[in-house]
Design a protein around this nucleic acid. Sequence first.
DNA 1: CTTCGTCATATTGCATGCTTATATTCTGGT
DNA 2: ACCAGAATATAAGCATGCAATATGACGAAG
Lengths: 220, 220
Amino acid sequence: MKREDLTQAERLAEQIAASVLSGEFAPGLRLDEAMLAARYAVSRTPVREALRQLASSGLIVLKPRRGATVADATSAQLESLFGAMAEIEAACARLAAMSMTPIERRRLQSLHESMTALTRRDERDEYAAANVAFHTCIYAGAHNEILADFAAGLRRRLAPFRRAQFRTEGRLARSHSEHATVVDAILACDAAAAHAAMFHHMSLVEDAYGQLGVATRASA
Amino acid sequence: MKREDLTQAERLAEQIAASVLSGEFAPGLRLDEAMLAARYAVSRTPVREALRQLASSGLIVLKPRRGATVADATSAQLESLFGAMAEIEAACARLAAMSMTPIERRRLQSLHESMTALTRRDERDEYAAANVAFHTCIYAGAHNEILADFAAGLRRRLAPFRRAQFRTEGRLARSHSEHATVVDAILACDAAAAHAAMFHHMSLVEDAYGQLGVATRASA
DNA sequence: CTTCGTCATATTGCATGCTTATATTCTGGT
DNA sequence: ACCAGAATATAAGCATGCAATATGACGAAG
């Protein structure tokens, strides 16, 4: 019953992260300790601890004596992030193909099928949410907590830079059809095919970013 | 010129990490804030910030209201760590085979050749150090800072559990010969072979741990 | 003899205040 | 008019102190 026994610093880290992910705190924005302390009605100490925690996850950047800013990636860094993401996601898909339980496979298939309707009706926000669930399902199916955490962390870190991901006309349908290839491979226990399909999918996600995401960047 | 402008918390994080990696702070050990503060002659505030930073990297565990302990992995968690390590190292090797510059390839080959002498003379500590340099060289060759950082982090995190890695008779020679396969594949720009060779190598590292590392565990 | 409840102690969590470094502005000189 | 240097202001880093909670021990009841 004391599941919600978070310390202030942890709650702050969550709230600040949520603000960054929602776009309220844009990349490059200076995060003033006193401002955050006032905003969340706490002292600067837990704020500082929360910032240090977030800095370790890469969501913000902490320069000694010069304060914290929301992480702002150069295009080279974004390339690294997308590249790493593709590698990790592909690895997870491969492992999932080999080690998912029947129940997990059913759940993945069901999740994928439920997204068909969202695609037809072009419900982009709903699809984006379901998309996260879909990928998270595969992380879990890899049965490797370390890789799953890393994949989730990378997804978080990229979130501020791909908010407009599904805005492109027809992106939903293409994404869904790529998912279908991945699901088929995983359900068929074809590790190599799952790896390849997911890698291909993630590469296209990167391309989609390249086409329209640049306009949203606020880098120096 | 002000390269050594680290804040206290950062210096503490480095020092505590070094103590953990050197085995001075064994897995499972309770890290008392006041004790650390006294040991390094600072107040508890920077200690707390350092601990939070280390907790994010997974080297220590921070339980709310219950203090910090050096991370102690169950065998299942170790399996995840080794599995993730194998995946990442293999991915780096594959990327390195594709994108290493000629200079980097020469350096890798040179590093590998310099380890031959260490193998013959059975200089285990020297070999262990060179081994880190060897793998780090491949991380760098992948030209993906994110993956490189993650690989280095995983290696750090596993370090406390494989201090006796090269104690087994003949482990050095086997490691070196596996490295040779990896180097050959990378120099030949054979991405698939590099991936496979590195994955194989890391799997054997995990096996080597399984044979003798268990005795060093202090888990509950 | 075992088990549960209460109390004491130690340690974490947080707030406040002071110190120090960095950034900005103002003034003086060229 | 412009640049350089110094002073001031602002914000980060750190220490100390207080409050809250977990842990261990001791005692009482079953």
